[in-house]
Design a protein around this nucleic acid. Structure first.
Lengths: 285, 285
DNA sequence: TTTATTTACGTAAAGGTTTGCGTAAAATAG
DNA sequence: CTATTTTACGCAAACCTTTACGTAAATAAA
């Protein structure tokens, strides 16, 4: 890697001190017009740019913000990062991305490293098995800026950006009720998940306010795994009365739910060859 | 932000020079056992960790690698970043993520900033409207490490990680032929796209080698936009003979293709109420 | 002409760490 | 007891930039 031009280099060529060069470049201090012009010209010629590492050492600022998310491959997370990156870049900051892979220990290590790396702050969406919040307290105590995104720990005095989980599912449920649905089922995430409970609460609230009774066993749980809740949904499809709508905890589970329903439809309503009015043989993989 | 402990702090408490503390911590130089122990104990107590910015200034290394991709919200990109992040983290590096949003100018600005920011190198997947490769030559000339991922410019002497586009579609097409398909259509991306041409080449090659003639107008183009090629595919569905398989340039276009086919199926093979053996009324949104 | 002020620049420290070099003191050898 | 070696540490420079402070020269005022 070729050496970039430094203040010293410019100073040496012009036979002045680095301080003079610095002042010329900032043009906010007593400096002769001729010197300033010479410096500016040479700086341009040598393609000078201040070394951000040196500035970082001086100002104790790196203009880098950390982002810790469970998995960047989840669409919610990547679109969140996309937005974060847009805003922060426009403000002259860079973004370091770290994945916890839903692992509490990895999350703690990442946070520690980001603090050590002197990032100016971190935005974090916590792993859902994080029960110990010690690493967060430590950071906050040290005065390190921490903002929680989407998933926040139940702690006092933290900064967080989340949705109103109760209100969100209440609105969604009310919408379904407005469409005429009276048998709305709910696919929650893993049992014990805080968000799952909150969102279920909104679902209940909407029913209560509409004066609609919820059928028994209309609540099913599922893991946040590759199946995306497909197997859980099939249970709902066998209930009597059959649900006329299904609310799910999030987008991934909704995808699994739709896949399960599609499989169910194809099973009970097979494509009928007899009414085909098109020649066939079409492979879709 | 509370001040972190520094070498100087430790030195002051112990009444030794920072150099001594540094050597004690690295235990690779002449130092008395007693001093070393005292330093180590205090360092631990004060929770000392070397300041990476200072180290960066000294070693001209930041242990940060840049990644420039068109859009993190594309699954291919986010899963690539996921892998990059895993490997690099294990090696003690952090990853700064930048999005070009398929904009050539943004890409150039990001690369410039990453170089200025003294990142140790950058992995880049170029925007597909990038025709001017000046910024890459500049970087390479300066000796800045650049690795192209997936999309690489047609330049000499670059490092890149890509797939063999011709071979990939050749294999896929051969697989389809092996399944018995004889009317395989191809949905390319935007006209003029290098990758699209290469992949089409593989499609042709497979047919040639199998001695199968390709039907006319079995090649359609589409934009990489929100429609994901749906409208382009409908043209294929009207061809005679109708394709019995469709190869697409990538996953997103495949999704659009499947959606188009599904719409087509539902149109020509509507669900037949008469053979329902299940009570109904099921909302899927 | 002398004094006060302004101008234009250099010096040095600070930010934190590492490392070659120098040097006292201690230990060993003669 | 002197001469040599080893030990254990400090000094200072280097990485690059900024900025308070100092100072020489030039200018303005008296």
């Amino acid at each position: 890697m070729k050496k970039e031009a430094t203040l010293k280099d410019i100073a040496k060529v012009l036979n002045v001190s680095p301080a003079t060069v610095s002042r010329a470049l900032h043009d906010d201090y007593q400096i002769s017009k001729s010197t300033k012009e010479k410096v500016l010209a040479l700086a341009k010629e040598m393609d000078y740019a201040p070394n951000p590492i040196a500035l970082g050492l001086l100002h104790k600022k790196t203009h880098i913000v950390g982002v810790i998310i469970p998995d960047i491959a989840y669409h919610f997370n990547s679109s969140a990062i996309s937005g974060i990156e847009n805003v922060l870049n426009a403000a002259g900051y860079s973004v370091i991305v770290c994945q916890s892979k839903e692992d509490f220990r990895k999350e703690a290590v990442h946070l520690k490293n980001l603090m050590l790396g002197r990032t100016d702050g971190t935005i974090i969406s916590i792993a859902h098995n994080t029960k110990d919040f010690q690493h967060f307290s430590t950071s906050i105590q040290k005065g390190y800026p921490l903002v929680f995104l989407d998933r926040a720990p139940p702690m006092e005095g933290i900064s967080s950006v989340t949705i109103d989980n109760v209100e969100a599912t209440k609105q969604a449920t009310t919408y379904l009720i407005g469409l005429g649905c009276r048998n709305i089922a709910y696919v929650a995430g893993p049992e014990g998940l805080e968000i799952g409970k909150k969102r279920y609460e909104g679902y209940l609230k909407a029913h209560r306010e509409a004066g609609i009774k919820i059928h028994e066993n209309y609540l099913v749980h599922c893991k946040f795994d590759h199946s995306m809740g497909k197997n859980a949904v099939t249970k709902l499809l066998l209930k009597k009365p059959k649900p006329d709508a299904i609310l799910t905890i999030n987008d991934r589970i909704a995808i699994g739910t739709m896949a399960a329903i599609r499989a169910w439809l194809l099973h009970f309503y097979p494509l009928n060859d007899q009414i085909c009015n098109e020649p066939d043989s079409f492979h879709v993989f």
